[in-house]
Design a protein around this nucleic acid. Structure first.
Lengths: 210, 210
DNA sequence: GGCATACTGTAACATTGGTTACATATTCTA
DNA sequence: TAGAATATGTAACCAATGTTACAGTATGCC
């Protein structure tokens, strides 16, 4: 584990901290689609992403979803951080977007290291700030963009985290992530295709103007 | 200042920290509508709210606004915290919702106290977490509610932070906060009035079913 | 009092997005 | 390979929201 750790977090953390992480952390590999954390789950450990990408979702009272953002290598889940703040249950769902490697740290360590390592403190504050920025971006997208613009942004974001301009997804999947219906997505995808921005196939979409 | 400070933050901070705040902080009283911070502003000090309420707004690329949430006594502006994280400019606008009293702390102190006072560290982390929760609530509201529900929620929230079931506001003001048009608000307000939930007057609205 | 300004009410219409319904096409599986 | 399951295309319609236009009303100011 120490190799992956140094490669991804070596520039952030001092050696003593890297060693502690190596001792108490557990290395984990999960496949695409793996449910890392669900709404209402009790949080016992916080993840450090080593490779891959994770999508963060919110749910409405009917059980329908909404994609908030993706987190990538070098990130952690700031929502987890709040468990040490009296908040015990997760307010979001985290699903592996690609095959993902992560290091799980027991939550007790988080606050212990806050006092002990300045670099950890900075990392946590930076994470909070990054997640806050991403929530603001999510708000901008939902509040200020029309569905066709949201859709195109979604496709580009997804191509980005997958490092591939062909994304494997059904219209229904997209509809879930954008909290709308499949018919609406099919309609808008078709018009994006007619505008020459994408190429539609069964189970995949190629982004042309990345 | 020490009196207001102890009254509002005495249960959170140890005496040594309260004294430091008293020494370096500046006390400030601002009227309703006062622009405390604008988008793009460089952040030089962070506010601790002593009394009153502040509304936090986001802006789209056409200059139209969207209300994110209110912060009240005992809160700070988590967006400010991020200035120490490399982020120099404010991403939001903060406007006094009521006459407001606050203590301004120079930003350098924030990180200094992070290492020095455990209670400060907890306060900062708690603030981040609270603001994150409020952003999630804002997302729920925007993404999952229809405009009439959003409007009613807005009126109730506003009555809450003003401690008054009569709120002084024009339809145009509401339209700005909810990022929609005055005509839409007038229409929905009228139907809320017909449903017996509110009473409309010029420049004010009385909430009946709080 | 009289004029200007700000606020509210409402009609008519346009656009976006959501719903229902059904046809067709592809893939999977027994 | 037949039939089931899944995915996509599209029409027709509806509901919610946005836009334009204008009338009426209250308020402030000279």
């Amino acid at each position: 584990m120490i190799t992956e750790l140094k490669e991804n977090y070596g520039y952030l953390f001092e050696n003593a901290l890297l060693n502690e992480i190596n001792n108490v952390g557990t290395y984990k590999e999960v496949p695409e689609g793996f449910l890392l954390m669900d709404i209402g789950d009790y949080i016992k450990s916080m993840p450090l992403l080593v490779s891959g990408a994770v999508k963060i979702l919110r749910e409405d009272d009917k059980g329908d979803e909404l994609l908030l953002y993706f987190i990538e290598r070098g990130d952690t889940c700031a929502m987890t951080l709040s468990c040490c703040m009296g908040q015990k249950k997760s307010e979001i769902r985290a699903v592996a977007e690609t095959p993902t490697k992560l290091i799980m740290i027991p939550v007790e360590k988080m606050s212990e290291w806050m006092g002990k390592y300045k670099s950890w403190q900075n990392f946590i504050l930076q994470s909070y700030h990054d997640r806050m920025s991403e929530l603001l971006e999510a708000i901008d997208t939902i509040a200020f963009l029309k569905m066709d613009e949201r859709l195109l942004k979604y496709l580009k974001d997804k191509a980005m985290v997958n490092h591939n301009d062909v994304i494997n997804v059904t219209h229904q999947n997209i509809a879930f992530d954008l909290h709308t219906s499949r018919v609406v997505i099919s309609r808008l995808l078709k018009s994006l295709e007619n505008a020459g921005k994408i190429k539609l196939n069964r189970n995949n979409i190629k982004i042309l103007d990345l």
